[in-house]
Design a protein around this nucleic acid. Structure first.
Lengths: 347, 347
DNA sequence: TTGTAGGCGTTATCAT
DNA sequence: ATGATAACGCCTACAA
């Protein structure tokens, strides 16, 4: 026999002089309970400082009001904004959020999925780690009845799964066209790992825009980074800017590398935007306040976070409905033109 | 009677031909179980795809492996880095993290505390919201046996509580001395709400340094902001720079306002650092890459996050120990000198 | 409208 | 070394 720790419904029942079922119903606002009894029970609960044990409720109902959020890292602009908005929306809908950082490790992603399954979360919102190539761990969760929504870094390989994405191809196309409009002709590209759909799409969009404009698509101007870190941006910028046939613009697949590219150009004495145009994907909070300010593609982190939660909870609540329709939602991005590509200086 | 949903230890027991107690022990690596039986049970569990229900374990043991983290907002540099490190450390120690954003609202902080109590988390790591002036909700959690560690924004009013802080007074003193060494003589200060200990301490440090140097401490050069937002920084900068007797340096209590101060000075045609020195507390990720780069006081978010988790889990594990010693840990900050205060331009 | 009792999936206390 | 069974705290058919 274990020690009883905190006050439970039995204590409240005793205090109020009713049965535990009445207490349970009164506290859950069951319409069958008379207003009078309800008041009595609530008073008793309050005076004893009763706090319902969500664990017990969860075990009993086989439901929980928590959702797991799987992201690679929390201290990057876009993802922290995304999680911020997810948490905000979830709170408004009565859910708590368990945050899991995968560090872009497939192993860790799997470990966390097991933890979340064990915790019997109601659903999971996930951004795939850069390493992820197989999805058994996600299927496992789905088989256990845990709902899943993929955001941003998704895979089309997973069917019957709601996805919230931006049109990476289109955004990249437009960003490249912007460079071309600004008069840049020799455009290089820094890509992330193309086994990730978003990076493949972004690269495709870039290539398409280059082709459409009849510009050269030199392979030596297309570089790859496995993690798109600040340091990697510096390395690639150095490589590109040391070429005999030097590009006069660089499109980077994230914002961090755009910033390190600009910083490195300065070190090399190359002027941005005059001698080198730079544009980056997914802006960081201070892109606007750098000098030059950084042209970038804004991802709608607020809409993405909100929709992810709404769709997830929708699916959770439609539990009986075999006909639930899994959607792939594509959101618009916004090209924020700033100084780093402003060669034409209008006005 | 409800439908049985997932495979449980009864199923495993049946499959392995043993009792549920044996299954439970085998899965928890109890030394009393023979290696042979263990193997048999594990095989059965694996083949059935058994995943232990952490909810049931938690109910039975009255313990849980999750900690709640209470912060004001996730999309600000320091806090997102702090939560990043908390999550990272917690994961390494076998704990999950529930993230709660208070939005600096006292009400929301209370709501979340109730949720966390209901969820029976093992402990809570909290950064006080700017509004918080009473602490009953924290005491309530402690009475329920939930351990608590306060980080950064703490209060000395709460005794018997571990606190992880920086020496705000000292950091502010040193920052101000740096300005003075750089030759700035008319120094203004933008403070946060001084009912928050950290802002009171920072202001004290500032005033002390000014006095020590025999410089004027003009009240019109000391301004307050309730939220230290970007916009508020602009507003205060405008007020200060419109004064007849204009300050030639501004120390701001966070980094965001330092950045908006610099941006606004530029709008007004005031040169930083030549005509105006600017230094800010708690640097944001890109302080180094702005132009001018922003001198700031670096808070050790990694050490703070790690220590918070370690101390918390230490306390959780020392549950029987009435003599647990609650510490207040004060960590060193680092003054990062950059261009925004570099009037002397050595080299 | 309220009460009784069984069940959710574990762990832990007895036995054997 | 293993098994039977009572907790943990709540919800919910079924009864009254």
């Amino acid at each position: 026999m274990k020690k009883k720790t905190r006050v439970n419904i039995y204590d409240v029942a005793a205090e109020a002089g009713v049965s535990i079922s009445t207490v349970s119903r009164a506290l859950n606002d069951d319409p069958r309970i008379s207003a009078k009894t309800k008041a009595k029970v609530q008073a008793a609960a309050k005076m004893l400082g009763f706090q319902k044990n969500a664990i017990a409720t969860s075990l009993s109902t086989n439901q929980s009001k928590v959702i797991g959020v799987l992201v690679s890292e929390l201290n990057r602009g876009f993802l922290s904004a995304l999680v911020h908005n997810i948490e905000e929306t979830a709170f408004g809908m009565g859910y708590s959020v368990i945050v899991c950082q995968t560090n872009n490790s497939h192993e860790r992603e799997k470990t966390y999925m097991d933890t979340l399954i064990a915790s019997r979360v109601a659903g999971i919102i996930a951004t795939l780690s850069l390493e992820t190539e197989s999805f058994e761990h996600f299927y496992k969760a789905k088989e256990q009845g845990i709902k899943l929504v993929l955001v941003d870094r998704v895979t089309n390989a997973m069917k019957e799964t709601t996805k919230i994405v931006i049109d990476d191809y289109q955004a990249s196309l437009e960003g490249t066209q912007h460079l071309i409009e600004q008069g840049y002709t020799k455009i290089a590209y820094l890509s992330g790992p193309t086994k990730q759909l978003i990076y493949a799409d972004r690269l495709r969009g870039f290539e398409q825009a280059i082709k459409q404009a009849g510009l050269p698509l030199k392979q030596e101007w297309i570089k790859y980074s496995s993690n798109l870190s600040f340091a990697d941006g510096t390395r690639v910028a150095d490589e590109l800017l040391s070429l005999k046939d030097r590009p006069n613009a660089i499109f980077t697949a994230n914002n961090l590398t755009a910033i390190s590219t600009i910083a490195h150009a300065e070190v090399l004495g190359i002027k941005v935007p005059e001698q080198l145009g730079v544009i980056g994907f997914s802006e960081e909070p201070f892109s606007a306040f750098m000098k030059p300010s950084v042209t970038s593609i804004r991802q709608p982190s607020k809409a993405m976070g909100q929709l992810a939660v709404q769709k997830l909870i929708e699916e959770i609540n439609s539990d009986q409905d075999e006909n639930y329709i899994h959607q792939k939602v594509v959101l618009d991005t916004e090209l924020i033109c700033r100084q780093s590509t402003n060669r034409k200086k209008p006005g």
